[in-house]
């Protein structure tokens, strides 16, 4: 192979399982184009019949929050337990929620 795999862009793989409603992040892989990425994702991440649908997304398209911003982004919600819906009396008739 004249082209090193390092030259192939990275893709993030999301797989939706049989009884899952959402695609979940499974991992990443290198592939020269979207079609190959999809095929490789099938081969690498669904070998044990994990999924019924696959998304691949160029890793470069992912916009991530910065670890430096962790405090301002997430700390403020730590001391607001009232946002968890645990203070309500649930009528017995409702059963499991």
């Amino acid at each position: 192979m004249s082209q090193s795999p390092d030259a192939w862009p990275l893709w993030e793989v999301f797989v939706r399982s049989k009884n899952g409603l959402a695609h979940k992040h499974s991992g990443s892989l290198h592939a020269p184009d979207a079609e190959t990425a999809l095929k490789s994702a099938r081969d690498v991440y669904t070998r044990r019949s994990e999924g019924v649908s696959i998304w691949v997304i160029p890793s470069s398209a992912v916009v991530a929050s910065s670890p430096d911003e962790r405090e301002p982004l997430f700390a403020p919600s730590d001391d607001k337990p009232y946002r968890h819906p645990t203070f309500y009396d649930i009528p017995d008739e409702v059963g499991h929620m």
Partner: peptide, 12 residues
């Protein structure tokens, strides 16, 4: 295999 992805593909 030349790369991990194709190694697994061919093994499958």
């Amino acid at each position: 295999g030349p790369v991990l992805e194709q190694d697994i593909a061919l093994t499958n």
